[in-house]
Amino acid sequence: MSTSALPFDDFRALVETMPGPDMEAVAAVRQRETQLTKPAGSLGRLEDLVEWLAAWQGQPKPRVSRPLVAVFAGNHGVAKRGVSAFPIEVTEQMVSNFAAGGAAINQLCIAYDLGLKVFELALEIPTADISVEDAFEEADCAATMAFGMEALSGGSDLVCLGEMGIGNTTVAAAIFHALFGGSARDWVGPGTGVEGDALELKVKVVEEAVERCGGPEKLEPFEVLRRLGGREIAAMTGLILAARMQQVPVVIDGFVTSAAAAILYKMDERALDHCIFAHVSAEPAHQKAIDAMNGKPLLDLGMRLGEGTGAAVAAGIIKAAAATHSGMATFEDAGVLNKD
């Protein structure tokens, strides 16, 4: 059956039936690690990454041969409130820049040999201004999630999430505030560079949006997404869920992609076990968001661009971890004495 018309109840059912990790594949990785020509544990977190890949690919010798960066672009009615340093037209202009190969993510995908797909989500029809009305009707939100699920097709063995959308750090802050509580100010940061009065306005807009929905921690997660989310966030939520069902590990990028992950985390704390947080961004509340989801970012490079750029850099490290594990000789193969 096509997923194009799945209502929220069917998505909830998928969350309830998510497959778990393949622990036999993990055991095989651990056994091989003891035989590789290096001291035990000497590659540190690279070894953890190989176990994570094995668990979610279901492969005793995991590999990354078809990595994909999936960038979703959406526009937001709330951008008209002046919460961004850039006008809403920049979203479409940057999508064109992606297509022309001129963006940062294009260069990183070339450097790390990653596939890149950009999904433009009805940019001419921004979601509603969430400070005054709901972003979606349920059918529209569900259809957008289903689109994200279908975007996974193609045999990728590692998926990196990215996004583009003027105003979407405001939307992400509202989602985090609604899901995890605290004050709006806890979750609002400069985004593309707003400060002073514009930053105060951004805090006010997030407060208005969440109070309109009854206040923080009042709605179940899919309702938070419907009422406060954006199309790119809904699509990424769908992709994360589809990846779990298809045994594809996921690399989460920055603040906005983490908001998509948070929807599923609040449904079930195991829902992100197949995901890794690529980095902690320079957006002040990102570390707070990762902590709320019991995450452990791989990198801290002061990045805050979006586009999947942090995820792409992390993917390079993940590829290296897999290649090291699969390509290294064992002590026996190399004729090297192991410890007693």
Rank of each mutant, 00 (worst) to 15 (best):
N338Q: 06
K319L: 01
A13D: 12
L108S: 08
A146R: 01
E24M: 13
F180M: 13
L264M: 12
K80V: 02
A172Q: 08
S4C: 14
W187E: 08
P221S: 12
P126I: 11
T17I: 10
K204W: 05
S42C: 10
I318N: 03
L201V: 07
S183L: 12
L68V: 03
V90C: 07
P39K: 11
G306L: 01
D300E: 15
H286C: 11
L152I: 09
G101P: 04
E269M: 11
G302P: 06
V71Y: 02
G101N: 09
S326K: 07
E89R: 06
E137Y: 04
I290C: 08
C213F: 07
G165K: 00
S65L: 09
N106W: 00
H286E: 12
G327I: 06
M1T: 08
D10V: 09
D340T: 02
G214V: 03
M18Q: 12
L179M: 10
A312H: 09
L46W: 11
N338K: 05
A198G: 04
C109G: 06
A151C: 10
E332D: 11
V29T: 07
H325G: 07
I290P: 00
A261H: 09
L179E: 10
G229R: 15
D340S: 05
A28C: 13
A242T: 08
D197W: 00
G306Q: 09
F331A: 06
H279L: 14
L114C: 05
P190H: 08
